[in-house]
């Protein structure tokens, strides 16, 4: 369906069509991650891409599971998901109340499952760089002060509200028109495990005690709050499923 929409998009103003299709067109640019990953300090290039306006819902993921029974929780091979996969749903093909309601973000999905979903609809997971780029562009567009951004994130880390998630896109879509990048659930990205690789002796896979300073360009709260997101993401395993981890898909422009 979305593949079709992307193809059709060529004949219409891109931004308008993307929005109707539930995606936002994000202009690329030169950009550097908000953590210090390289000694060289070269900036990276982000190409234009499209991103889902909101996170994938239980309802949408249920459609996917129905069409692809090999991703039912009772059929998905163990190599692709841990024991908690979709365990909050009342049944393998049934939604329910609260976090299992159709309009809530789907959680307890592994990286493998998230990728399979995006591939099925003609997309892919955003790269870590794309996701972080969108996050920063959104902050700029909304003129969120670093202190407010940090407070919101630290609040979410301590009290993620995982027992009672809001529906996706509860508020108005302002800024870039993207909902819930922060404050609802964290999102899978394609290369989630790639951070903190800074060489032979110092790369302990995920960083260790006291490693924070090497990766922060500034010691303010906002950079710490961002770093914790990188840190948490890189500590997941591809089979990990939790109540605070969902995803949205990205697409290449035609």
């Amino acid at each position: 369906m979305r593949t079709l929409l992307i193809t059709l998009m060529l004949s219409l103003p891109i931004a308008v069509f993307a929005e109707e299709a539930g995606m936002v067109y994000i202009d690329g640019g030169d950009w550097e991650l908000p953590i210090v990953r390289e000694d060289t300090g070269q900036s990276g290039r982000v190409e234009d891409f499209l991103l889902d306006v909101h996170q994938v819902t239980n309802a949408a993921f249920l459609d996917f599971v129905r069409a692809n029974p090999e991703w039912r929780r009772d059929q998905a091979p163990g190599i692709f998901r841990d024991a908690g996969y979709l365990s909050h749903w009342p049944s393998a093909e049934g939604l329910g109340e609260g976090n299992a309601a159709p309009d809530r973000p789907v959680t307890r999905v592994s990286w493998y499952a998230a990728r399979a979903y995006c591939r099925e609809i003609g997309g892919r997971l955003p790269s870590m760089t794309e996701w972080e780029y969108a996050s920063e562009r959104q902050r700029q567009a909304l003129e969120i002060a670093p202190q407010d951004y940090a407070s919101q994130l630290f609040s979410w880390y301590a009290n993620p509200g995982a027992g009672d998630l809001r529906p996706v896109a509860s508020g108005p879509a302002d800024g870039l028109g993207i909902h819930d990048l922060h404050g609802l659930v964290l999102e899978w990205v394609e290369d989630f495990q790639l951070i903190l690789g800074r060489g032979d002796d110092i790369d302990l896979l995920t960083g260790s005690c006291g490693d924070t300073a090497r990766f922060l360009p500034e010691f303010d709260e906002a950079h710490y709050a961002t770093f914790l997101r990188f840190q948490s993401r890189s500590n997941y395993q591809p089979v990990t499923t939790t109540s605070t981890l969902g995803f949205r898909c990205a697409y290449d422009p035609e």
């Binding site: 163990g78 190599i79 690789g197 060489g199 089979v239």
Partner: peptide, 23 residues
């Protein structure tokens, strides 16, 4: 030239499964 120009090994992840890769 530059130590960083040589690619550096990244520690492998632990494998916690006993499932077949043939999936």
């Amino acid at each position: 030239h530059d130590a960083h120009a040589n690619h550096t090994p990244m520690t492998a992840e632990a494998i916690t499964h006993e499932h077949s890769l043939f999936h």
